[in-house]
């Protein structure tokens, strides 16, 4: 069941120059959500942001009926969202899309790049609640672009790469030592981030018999399967990222890797 609801901002926590985390209060009991699902957020008061902005559900607290959204300021719409204050209203259409599915074994690696870390906190919490301790591999350009590492560390082991070596291992996520071991310490990869990163991981997984679930960020107009703008080529033809995804098994996608 999809909902359209006015949430109230409780806090707007600035994380870095680029990122804020909004905590939103739902007026009643939160509906159940699956990690990897997203919300279409209406942007009020932006001159050039016409459409809603699709944002991952970053975290959920069912006991307090709150959710968190991780916002990266990339354009006018997200800049307006990043300025919201405690008490402001925010209109969401949610929960949308097909999220991550639970693994068949407990050995999971969650890989995030840039703002792609957003859905992995909720996913990691979901694993912990199901008795699975996740490993996180988080990549950024520099140490300053890594977001909320402490929150991930509360859930599992966190490994870090940066392109300039200012934190963790220098290089891209695929260069981290845990990706180099002869027998990987995980059977399932869950990832969200730039396509180039996810394609490398899909190739890595494919050659080792590991499953790889990827989350796509195609541009959307509606978010619920009406406009057919956000399609991606799959083995079954064009599929909507908003309904059939955003999470897909990498083998289902027609990716050149």
């Amino acid at each position: 069941m999809k909902h359209i609801t006015d949430f109230t901002i409780i806090t707007n926590q600035r994380e870095t120059d680029e990122f804020v985390v909004l905590t939103l209060q739902h007026p009643g009991e939160l509906p159940s959500m699956v990690p990897g699902q997203f919300a279409e957020v209406r942007v009020d008061g932006a001159e050039n942001a016409f459409l809603r902005r699709p944002l991952s559900i970053h975290d959920v607290d069912y006991s307090n009926n709150t959710i968190k959204l991780l916002i990266q300021e990339v354009g006018e719409g997200t800049r307006v969202l990043a300025k919201l204050k405690s008490g402001d209203q925010l209109n969401l259409v949610y929960p949308l899309g097909t999220g991550y599915s639970l693994p068949k074994s407990n050995r999971v690696l969650l890989v995030g790049g840039g703002c792609g870390v957003a859905p992995l906190l909720f996913l990691g919490r979901h694993f912990v609640e199901n008795g699975i301790r996740p490993k996180f591999l988080i990549g950024g350009r520099t140490a300053a672009t890594l977001i909320r590492l402490d929150a991930y560390e509360q859930l599992g082991d966190v490994y870090v790469t940066t392109e300039d070596g200012s934190a963790g291992h220098k290089g891209f996520v695929i260069h981290h030592p845990i990706m180099k071991t002869e027998t990987p310490e995980f059977d399932h990869i869950y990832t969200c981030g730039p396509d180039a990163m996810m394609k490398v991981l899909a190739k890595y997984a494919g050659s080792r018999g590991i499953t790889c679930q990827v989350s796509l960020e195609n541009h959307m107009a509606c978010g619920f399967g009406a406009c057919l703008c956000c399609v991606t080529p799959t083995v079954d033809g064009h599929k909507c990222t908003c309904v059939d995804g955003p999470v897909f098994d990498s083998k289902y996608l027609k990716w050149e890797i």
Partner: peptide
Amino acid sequence: EGNAYPRMAE
């Protein structure tokens, strides 16, 4: 199948 992505511009 329709046209290739990208199909939308704000």
